[in-house]
Design a protein around this nucleic acid. Structure first.
Lengths: 203, 203
DNA sequence: TTTCAAAACGACACCGGTGTCGATATAATG
DNA sequence: CATTATATCGACACCGGTGTCGTTTTGAAA
């Protein structure tokens, strides 16, 4: 009745498989990785792998969930300024546009775009979009209420434009070699776009 | 030695297959359409289909080429204003942001993103990107030279931001239902971004 | 040390998609 | 009408990926 291996071991094994899978997905993309690839990378047998994940979709969604809990729950407490908070949200801790792209981002795009006709996947993608939207929208709304941001534009619309920009950048970055996309410069330009929309003057 | 059916007939058949394929790609996306789907939609046998196209990639690229010749060669002659020309380029003839999306766009994204590790596909995608970039860059450069546009920003960078925005919009539109993306509103906002970057005051 | 539940294994049957190839139908040509 | 090049056909063999299942191994508990 009691399990024959420790709960710890199971968790570890699962984590190892996930990590190996992440690498494989990064290398081959979503559509072109096979369970065999994952088996080999994780050094686990076919049966062993299916013990933990019942198929590729299941496996990939586990990776998506991982990323999610990690991203959320940024400190929304000490509001130095909403603008710097926005920059942090966009570009990470230091809030300057020299971020690296999430190496799994291209596969994520693949996952959702190739699954756009699947009911489940589509709903899942929408939920994620809404969550991302909510975060930016809330922040901008507060900034507008506080008077730090202009309310010339609808907060939700500006929030959408942020997501669209990020998605577009991720897409171009997935398709083109790094030096062709000019991540940093484009990000800086988009920040200027935002400054205009929100009427922010800070450097 | 002479062909047994007219050149016309062959061209027509090929065109019919292409049109059928377009519909299938629109419906199922690139990765999930099979040659069987196309066979059925075009009412042609397996052998017949392979007579015209040696595989799915070949077939899809034929569709891409079609779209290309159609898009290019806009009249660059009578320059009322570079701004209105830019708007036309972005939103078609009337130059107002109420454009419909190319229904094949999602599949195009799929094609390039899933093929990002394939040498050929990648190179092909880059070529297309460069071509698109060139068009916008040229236009903006001229506008800046003529004094109609501010040269505060590098023309190529602004051109890139246009493409990134379009790509992002196409991506979101592919994944989300129409009413969630707010194509029109987002386009209008982006136009304002551009007005700021190029210092254009026209309504 | 023995026991045994569950973890790990890998062979297997299945499936859908692919591209080929010999056979057949067809329409220009003489 | 007969000829013949070739467009069209569909059966076929092949392949890679999937998920299952009976077997073996393992390690915690007794």
């Amino acid at each position: 009745m009691s399990p024959r291996v420790s709960k710890e071991h199971l968790k570890q094994r699962r984590a190892d498989i996930l990590e190996a899978a992440r690498q494989v997905f990064i290398e081959h993309g979503y559509e072109h990785t096979t369970m065999k690839h994952v088996m080999e990378a994780a050094d686990v047998s076919r049966g062993g792998l299916y013990q933990y994940f019942s198929n590729k979709e299941d496996l990939f969604e586990a990776l998506l969930e991982e990323g999610l809990t990690e991203e959320t729950e940024d400190s929304l407490e000490k509001v130095e300024s909403y603008w710097s908070l926005l920059m942090q949200l966009l570009f990470g801790e230091d809030g300057s546009p020299d971020t690296e792209m999430d190496p799994l981002a291209p596969s994520k795009l693949e996952f959702f775009i190739t699954g756009r006709n699947d009911e489940r996947r589509r709903a899942y993608g929408e939920k994620r979009y809404e969550m991302g939207l909510r975060i930016y929208d809330d922040l901008i709304k507060r900034g507008q209420k506080s008077g730090e941001f202009s309310d010339r534009y609808d907060s939700e619309l500006v929030a959408r434009s942020i997501i669209t920009f990020i998605d577009g950048l991720a897409l171009d970055h997935a398709i083109l070699p790094d030096e062709k996309v000019k991540l940093k410069e484009q990000s800086a330009l988009f920040v200027d776009y935002l400054k205009m929309a929100l009427d922010v003057s800070s450097s």
